[in-house]
């Protein structure tokens, strides 16, 4: 854990990201899909939607930290809602 100054929270964070990426790679191979056009008017695949979700979640967390400044875990609930919305409508 000393290597690269790892800590458990960051390690768990990256393990989650890695697992998500692996899952989506697996899904992409197992269940090929057609890109679709959502509310943003652009073609997206599952991978694109995952990217939008992750990037958006980072900003949601930052905004929560900047405006609310407490109870950070609740920001994750907002992120989940956002993720569901992205996967449903984008």
């Amino acid at each position: 854990m000393d290597w690269m100054a790892w800590t458990w929270p960051t390690a768990i964070f990256f393990i989650c990201i890695a697992c998500t990426l692996i899952t989506f790679t697996f899904l992409a191979i197992k269940f090929p899909e057609t890109p679709r056009r959502g509310v943003l008017g652009m073609e997206t695949t599952r991978g694109d939607r995952l990217f939008i979700t992750l990037l958006g979640s980072a900003f949601i967390n930052l905004v929560w930290l900047g405006i609310v400044g407490a109870n950070q875990p609740f920001a994750l609930i907002v992120c989940l809602v956002y993720a569901a919305a992205v996967f449903r409508w984008v």
Binding site: M4, A5, T7, F14, L65
Partner: peptide, 27 residues
């Protein structure tokens, strides 16, 4: 980049010693 993430949640005074700081720096 992962190293940067690691640094962002810790404090250091050099000599490879790190102290947990959580989200303090972001705030």
């Amino acid at each position: 980049l992962m190293t940067v993430v690691n640094y962002s949640v810790q404090d250091t005074f050099g000599q490879n010693q790190f102290f947990w700081a959580g989200l303090e720096w972001f705030e």
